[in-house]
Design a protein around this nucleic acid. Structure first.
Lengths: 236, 236
DNA sequence: ATTGACAGATTGTAAGGCAATCTGCTTGAC
DNA sequence: GTCAAGCAGATTGCCTTACAATCTGTCAAT
């Protein structure tokens, strides 16, 4: 079997770099939800012209990472709990399906990669590095999604995950959540290893459902001081 | 109960109009798959400046209605059958879920609207107006999606539907497909009316699965003369 | 306290320009 | 005749400048 390698070189354009930089910044929580992004400021801090920046903003708008109100400009959307909940509901469907397909079709080398990644997550849990926990967990899901045999699921999930990602850091830091999280992910892995699609689907769904519940607790904690939130809302 | 009316006026910007016009044009099949879109031509035919057009193109790119290759510009993506199949697979999941939720929660007035729309579709089937058939069928699904209580499902489905829409006109025109289609949609409606979520889910999934099979036949019919397709591909 | 008007800030859109890249055609060598 | 090299035109990526439309906040007037 020959190695299937994609040699295509995709030139990196300014526009792409801006999209990636801004996406990373948004996901990292650099901008407060509800805050406005001023084009001229972004231009100077990124070192690009306004047209290039505006193209990048349109891309992010279509990804729903920012909202653009005509004549007011781009701003970081304020995610209500209901919004987040709906995303988790769809993720439950899609990740369940992905895990089931994965269990049916995954090959040995990919399975091994999944196992390694789970181990990495376990180690990250023992250490006290929340960023590493998120990264290893994300990569664990990513392997499942890559091997589910359906690129659309992968694409859609990627978009949804981005939008609730900032909740994950908080919910992961809830007491006991890390340990539960590992056990749930291990259950998914075992079901996939045993090529049991329905068990894998259930395990994945349960995992997302639990993550949703943790996220809800975390969300209420964030939203608890309503004074600050209301002032913020009024100011814009 | 007071009437809940959204009085907000959203000013229409040039870039929005361009996005809508181009999206409509793409979905209507004005451009051949694989053909390139030249910015200067689009600018003059739309009567807008290049920056505005390019912003609109970025939006469409993020919707995956066009592809933009650096230094080559935008082009209409060539949908392989596998791509289309994967979209149908995800639609089966999502529309099934939407129908089930709809069955659980839909209220009388919306149910009546659904019934009316089904009747409109039935009439469109009797007439020989393929455009009207597609429109009424699309609106039938849209009502279900609107009432499923999850905006994310609605959004994702909208994006997916757009990308396989051009296949629907062809698969609908296959012999007997119209009649089967009506009966399947009627089954969905009856299950929703009876507030039977699982039956609604199954009916919706069966409907999409059948639509997928018809689309496959239609797709093979399009793709049959490989000479033309290859010449087209070579030319770009 | 509410209204009205004004100034400053910001966005929406256009136009022009130039370097980098791609494409197709021609030329030249074998 | 075939194939590689090179050239010219077309096209895109990106920047700068510009200006009208719109929004926001302030301040005076009622």
């Amino acid at each position: 079997m020959t190695i299937k390698l994609d040699l295509r070189i995709v030139p990196r354009t300014v526009q792409q770099e801006v999209v990636e930089k801004l996406r990373f910044a948004i996901l990292s929580g650099v901008f407060q939800p509800g805050s406005r992004l001023v084009e001229s400021q972004l231009c100077s801090s990124l070192g690009v012209s306004r047209p290039s920046l505006r193209e990048a903003l349109r891309s992010l708008q279509a990804e729903r990472l920012i909202e653009i109100v005509p004549n007011r400009g781009p701003q970081i959307p304020v995610l209500s709990w209901r919004d987040a909940e709906e995303i988790y509901e769809v993720r439950e469907l899609l990740e369940g399906e992905a895990a089931a397909r994965c269990a049916a079709t995954i090959k040995a080398p990919d399975l091994e990669e999944l196992s390694d990644q789970l181990e990495r997550f376990r180690r990250a849990c023992r250490s006290n590095d929340p960023v590493e926990r998120i990264n290893t967990a994300t990569e664990f899901y990513a392997i499942i999604l890559r091997n589910c045999g359906n690129k659309i699921i992968e694409q859609v999930e990627g978009g949804l995950l981005a939008r609730v990602n900032f909740l994950r850091a908080r919910s992961m830091s809830l007491p006991n959540r890390v340990k539960d999280s590992y056990e749930e992910m291990n259950a998914i892995y075992v079901a996939i290893k045993n090529h049991d699609p329905e068990k894998a689907r259930k395990a994945a769904r349960r995992h997302i459902a639990n993550a949703r519940n943790s996220a809800k607790l975390a969300f209420e904690k964030i939203d608890q001081p309503p004074e600050t939130a209301k002032k913020q809302a009024k100011r814009r």
